[in-house]
Amino acid sequence: MHNDHEIILNNISFAYKQRNVLENVDLLIKKGEFASIVGPNGGGKTTLLKLILGLIKPDRGVIRILGKSPDKVRQQMGYMPQYAHLDMDFPATVMDVVLMGRLTKSNLWFSKKDKIEVLTAIDEVGMTAFVNTEFNELSGGQKQRILIARALCSNPDILLLDEPTANVDHQTEENLFSILQKLNSKMTILLVSHDLGFVSKYVKSVICVNRQVVIHPTTLINGAMIKDIYHGDLKMVRHDHRCSQEGHSHD
């Protein structure tokens, strides 16, 4: 059964400063999945992502990504961090930033092939016109797209994104998810989001994280289930963005 799964977490526990962040977590993600990790602040969403990436090691349990330990397959995973974590004064063009995705242990210099792969990835996120633009001059949504291109240009099997729509407007959010939906035909996608109402329109399943992990198909998400997972009431806004002359309505 496990052979079908690209991501396997078996009985994982992780504590930070003696506070249990994740406890006895089991998670199986199939090839081609498009899933969103949701949950309250401090519930362990980013920790789960970092464990999968191999940036941190679990205190207990086993993680297998593409059948191997995470640090063995890092180059087959594309990762997009939140752009807010990056230095906005750094002098770099879009090309410079995306080329980072072509770094390997062995190549000291970028080849012509690297540059072609980078241009293809930039084209895939619709940013070809900005190749020589300074990264700092881009809007929040454009920066997110460039960071997705950086994650894509190594042709990963799994794409992991940390709050790809944080600090971007609704239209940008829609555009980003349209890009991700297209990419999902080629790779497994796992993203952290705080906006369950919005992501449930696009993703196939939702991984609810609050020290423990429960995975649901998006069609089964309802109030009672969320209350059970979050151990309390949660304000869930389902956006139905229809712009009319009367204004913008929220259901």
Partner: peptide
């Protein structure tokens, strides 16, 4: 000069650089 791309990457985004196996 030899490690320009490595230093660039470590300075811009150290976490991502380590994910590239550096």
């Amino acid at each position: 000069i030899l490690f320009f791309n490595r230093f660039f990457s470590v300075c811009f985004d150290s976490e991502f650089t380590s994910l590239r196996g550096i």
